[in-house]
């Protein structure tokens, strides 16, 4: 039992904390938002750090690290709202690795020279709508009726303007090639996305609270620091408690996937829902305790609010995720088709 980062994990975290602090200030996030929602320079620096291939086998050019190590990076990337599709790319590359027979492609993905993503929701007809990183990815993994396929040929299409300026775009699927990944293998891929996105949400949420707390230690009203008002303190305390709980749950979900625990998929689903809700609550409290400035574009906290809203919706309505977990736990709804 080790519910804190190990020494090795702390070393990874510290290295990437430095990296993102230098390479990804919020000005980078804002600049990316003006364009595709992706920062190619940040991606190549991140690739130089080995992040894209971290949790891929050494034989395919990866670093052979565990999903729990990749989660450390996802945590820090989330805290910086990094405009790079690290999670989508990594879980897609891991899916191709499990399917087998795509060694050359996986090697390119490990290197980061080719960018991959996945359609989290099944395509309708020949179009996958609002694909995460759809505006920038070279390779698209998708799943429909038990068949998982990749498409390489078609170029990325334009980003649709969206809540958090993510690189979301529709992708027309022209040249699907089926790969050897059944429904379970696909679910596993989406579960990895859920668990890592939960971890990223925790990073986002912790930072949102830090930003808010720092502000309330500077702003004076009624002659005192607003941080001395118990109403604000208790809102932050509830948010921090929820986020700490989300952190422990998200890390446990990643560990459970890595070590193939029986309840891993359930934990991954739970972790994403709880982390998203905690992060939205934390961002909401932080915006609220900034007063009007929190609403202004100039202040960073609004970025956190918008990203907290957006990430989980790439998968769909949270209510559908609760329903999915309920079906697994209680069986399908009686009388439902």
């Amino acid at each position: 039992m080790r519910t804190r980062y190990s020494e090795d994990e702390v070393a990874v975290r510290d290295a990437f904390l430095d990296f993102f602090a230098n390479e990804c200030p919020t000005s980078t996030v804002r600049a990316a938002a003006e364009g595709s929602g992706f920062d190619p320079a940040l991606w190549s620096s991140l690739a130089a750090m080995g992040a894209p291939g971290m949790a891929l086998p050494e034989s395919l050019g990866g670093a052979g690290a565990a999903l729990t190590d990749l989660a450390v990076v996802a945590d820090v990337a989330g805290a910086h709202l990094a405009p790079v599709p690290l999670i989508e790319h990594a879980v897609t590359a891991r899916a191709l690795t499990r399917a087998g027979g795509h060694d050359d492609l996986v090697a390119e993905l490990a290197e980061g020279s080719t960018l991959a993503t996945l359609a989290l929701r099944p395509p309708t007809g020949d179009t996958a709508r609002l694909v995460p990183a759809g505006a920038v990815a070279d390779v698209l993994l998708h799943h429909c009726d038990g068949v998982t396929s990749i498409s390489r040929g078609n170029a990325p299409s334009a980003k649709l303007p969206n809540t958090a300026d993510l690189p979301l775009a529709h992708r027309v699927i022209s040249d699907p090639t089926a790969i050897d990944l059944d429904a379970d293998g696909w679910n596993r891929t989406v579960d990895e996305w859920r668990a890592l996105t939960a971890v990223a949400y925790v990073g986002l949420a912790k930072r949102a609270i830090e930003i808010g707390v720092a502000y309330t230690k500077e702003r004076i009203q009624f002659g005192v620091l607003i941080g001395t008002f118990q109403a604000l303190q208790h809102g932050f305390a509830d948010a921090a408690t929820s986020v700490e709980g989300a952190h422990l749950l998200a890390q446990r979900a990643v560990w459970a996937l890595e070590t193939n625990q029986p309840g891993a998929s359930r934990l991954a689903g739970m972790a994403l829902l709880f982390a998203a809700e905690s992060a939205r609550f934390a961002a909401d409290r932080s915006v609220q305790y900034h007063g009007g400035y929190g609403f202004s574009e100039e202040y960073d906290i609004q970025l956190y609010h918008r990203h907290a809203t957006a990430w989980i919706l790439q998968l769909g309505d949270p209510a559908a995720e609760y329903a999915r977990l309920a079906d697994a736990e209680f069986g399908p709804v009686k009388g439902a088709a």
Partner: peptide, 11 residues
């Protein structure tokens, strides 16, 4: 939590 974890000033 507010004082010990978040370092907010004593209310």
């Amino acid at each position: 939590v507010a004082e010990g974890f978040l370092g907010l000033p004593r209310a």
